[in-house]
């Protein structure tokens, strides 16, 4: 998975894609995931880091992360590896 590296996320959760000119709002956990994706973390690694930080379980995280990735793909912020 490859995230658009130019994405600028500000502290208040405003995300700007300079390539397309689109703007988004993202919640704190969403911003953390995008930052992790930008620094090249794998899906497994992201889940394990989030499990350390948040009061939830692995199954829920897997399902929600999958859903979040789908939306990022739909917004063309994330693409499958070539």
């Amino acid at each position: 998975m490859k995230i658009n590296e130019n994405l600028a996320i500000s502290d208040n959760g405003f995300l700007f894609n300079p390539t397309t000119g689109e703007s988004y709002t993202v919640n704190p956990i969403g911003a953390e995931i995008i930052e992790m994706l930008k620094s090249g973390e794998t899906q497994e690694r992201i889940i394990s880091r989030l499990l350390d930080m948040y009061d939830t379980d692995k199954k829920t995280l897997e399902k929600d992360l999958h859903d979040f990735s789908d939306i990022l793909k739909q917004y063309q912020l994330l693409s499958e590896d070539e």
Partner: peptide, 11 residues
């Protein structure tokens, strides 16, 4: 500036 749009959108 984008930051102005950002402020009104988020805050």
């Amino acid at each position: 500036d984008r930051t102005e749009f950002e402020k009104i959108s988020i805050n």
